[in-house]
């Protein structure tokens, strides 16, 4: 009996995951086809860019600066042992542009905006606001989801580039100001080391991450009522939001590896 019960539960889980994947694909499809149709909702998109992008700027600046500083500190220590301190600029910039910039930015955006988006849509679901939109003949995919996804795709690459630049600046502070490396050497090795391909890789990643974050968070919130444990009220929203943050973080780290493996 135990085996049967266990198998049953496994099957339930499988069905639930399959359904959820189907639903999220449907959501993305409706949202993207909704965007394509005029009239365009520019004011909704700008409001979301303000929320996801502009309001995240401060966090990104701080995180980027410290990440750059830490990187330069560690690289300086390591490179010193091999007597190749001149490579500090290129090492810092490459690490930032290719990996840390997109990933750290994505994680910060998940924490700041992804969780908020999921909770917002989840509460709209539980308080019948999404039903109200449907009944007013306003397409919730187009009105609620699409602006968030567009804003994510626009904001995250921009934030990533800000993160890269401020990170390089942080590395400069540690390498040049603290350890006394020459300013020319720092930037020279950067010019020599970083190629267009590296920048494209970072950009591609951040575009993908922008889509992933908004997609996962909005899906989790939007389909809150399908949750197997029966999400209800505050507890439901908090659990779904936690799931959204965990899931999108994992998706980001996995996607990072995937893009890296494909593009290298």
């Amino acid at each position: 009996m135990f085996v049967v019960k266990w198998l049953g539960r496994l099957g339930d889980q499988f069905l639930y995951i399959t359904e959820q994947i189907g639903r999220s694909a449907m959501l993305l499809f409706y949202a993207l086809t909704g965007i394509a149709k005029p009239p365009y909702k520019l004011h909704l998109i700008t409001r979301q860019i303000l929320f996801i992008g502009a309001r995240s700027l401060f966090v990104i600046l701080v995180a980027g600066f410290f990440t750059g500083m830490v990187l330069a500190l560690q690289f300086y220590n390591t490179l010193e042992r091999f007597g190749s301190i001149d490579l500090l600029g290129s090492a810092t910039a490459l690490a930032l542009v290719r990996e840390l910039g997109p990933v750290m930015t994505a994680l910060m955006v998940i924490g700041r905006a992804g969780s908020a988006m999921c909770a917002e849509i989840g509460i709209m679901r539980t308080s019948e606001q999404i039903d109200a939109l449907e009944c007013m003949a306003i397409d919730p995919y187009r009105y609620l989801i699409a602006p968030k996804i567009i804003a994510g795709i626009i904001s995250v690459p921009l934030l990533t580039s800000v993160f890269d630049v401020i990170g390089i600046l942080g590395g400069y502070v540690v390498g040049v100001v603290v350890f006394g490396l020459s300013s020319g050497a720092y930037f020279d090795s950067m010019y020599a080391g970083v190629e267009w391909n590296d920048i494209m890789m970072g950009l591609n990643k951040s575009l993908l991450f922008g889509l992933t974050i908004t997609w996962v968070s909005t899906t989790m919130g939007f389909f809150l009522h399908y949750d197997r444990k029966g999400a209800y009220g505050a507890e439901g929203v908090s659990r779904i939001t936690t799931n959204a943050v965990v899931l999108s973080s994992i998706a980001i780290l996995f996607g990072d590896y995937l893009v890296g493996a494909v593009m290298l």
Binding site: E128, Q129, A137
Partner: peptide, 28 residues
């Protein structure tokens, strides 16, 4: 088309928290 000819008031009101009362009423 059909839904434009019907109005619904939900149990909890279902007003949108990010908009003023006026904007809520104007939304349709």
């Amino acid at each position: 088309e059909l839904r434009r000819q019907m109005g619904v008031a939900f149990q909890g009101g279902a007003l949108f928290g990010s908009m003023t009362v006026g904007e809520n009423v104007c939304l349709p």
